[in-house]
């Protein structure tokens, strides 16, 4: 198979897009205990914000930054004005899942109403190819790859070396203990939503670049790959999500070459289920604990 190595390049690009999304998704889940089905819809929303910015004349990378910031703000506001009030009313884990489902429908179809059902695309500069061994990348793919790496390092630095990051880990590990040590769980919850919105927003634009089209169902479809990456690594495990993103991304592209495009997601998901049969709590299970699921 002389296409296996070249498609490894595509796999790495897919993984770079998947990485911030899966890390954002899992970080927010571990810190807040809310399974956010609306994550894909939030990505779509941010991708369209970037589209509006590029239409206004901004370069795609500035548009991505703007979309990430908008995604972060939208995510934090949604938490403050929708999810936190529901949690305060004592809505159960199931109830919160359903709230995010409703939210996903609202965002997705609002996007369809505003921007229409047809896909749009970003104006990308002429693709010059860069060859790395048997793999070749366009310039924008290389930037996507670099952004993925920056997000991986950034997340590591945030969680390992900053007070806020340590507080997120503390809340994720044991909310009550963290609160009794003087950490404001509410502020950390806000922060977790902010960070996940930022990563989801950037990932949405990166996905739009990789697919070279942006449509209102885009995030909805991608959500399953995010969930697969997050679950593969172990739910709530940030480094696991990074590993999961890499495995799922490469698997998707390799199986597309070996088995044909239509079977790619099937084989990636089948690997997820096989791994879970051997390690029921994901690759990096660690001390993962049930998040209020009874």
């Amino acid at each position: 198979m002389n296409l296996v190595l070249p498609s490894l390049g595509f796999g790495i690009i897919t993984a770079s897009t998947l990485l911030p999304a899966a890390v954002g998704f899992t970080l927010q889940f571990s810190a807040t205990g809310v399974l956010n089905i609306a994550f894909g819809a939030q990505m779509t929303f941010a991708a369209f914000i970037a589209y509006v910015c590029t239409q206004a004349g901004l370069s795609i990378w500035l548009a991505m930054a703007a979309a990430a910031v908008c995604g972060a703000l939208a995510s934090a506001l949604l938490n403050r004005f929708l999810l936190t009030p529901f949690a305060r009313r004592g809505t159960t884990f199931f109830g919160m899942v359903v709230v995010t489902i409703a939210l996903a429908l609202l965002v997705e179809y609002a996007v369809e109403l505003i921007w229409g059902p047809l896909p749009v695309s970003y104006p990308l500069t002429a693709p010059g190819l860069v060859h790395v061994g048997p793999m070749s990348f366009t310039h924008s793919q290389l930037v996507v790859l670099a952004i993925g790496v920056v997000f991986a390092i950034g997340t590591h630095a945030l969680l390992r070396y900053t007070r806020a990051g340590k507080a997120i880990r503390a809340v994720a590990d044991n909310r009550d203990l963290a609160r009794s040590s003087g950490i404001s769980a509410q502020r950390i919850t806000d922060l977790a939503w902010l960070v996940s919105g930022l990563m989801g927003g950037a990932a949405g634009v990166m996905l739009g670049i990789s697919l070279s089209s942006v449509s209102y169902t885009m995030g909805d479809t991608f959500l399953l790959e995010i969930v697969a990456a997050a679950v593969l690594g172990g739910v709530g495990q940030v480094y696991g999500a990074m590993l999961g993103a890499l495995v799922i991304g490469v698997l998707l592209q390799e199986s597309a070459i070996v088995l044909g495009g239509a079977y790619a997601p099937i084989s990636a998901f089948a690997v997820l289920i096989l791994v879970l049969l051997i390690r029921p709590t994901g690759i990096l299970a660690g001390a993962a604990k049930a998040k209020g699921v009874s």
Partner: peptide, 14 residues
């Protein structure tokens, strides 16, 4: 073998 939240997500994938 899977925990409740894993079950839900894996069922979605299935």
């Amino acid at each position: 073998r899977l925990r409740g939240d894993y079950q839900a997500m894996v069922l979605l994938v299935v």
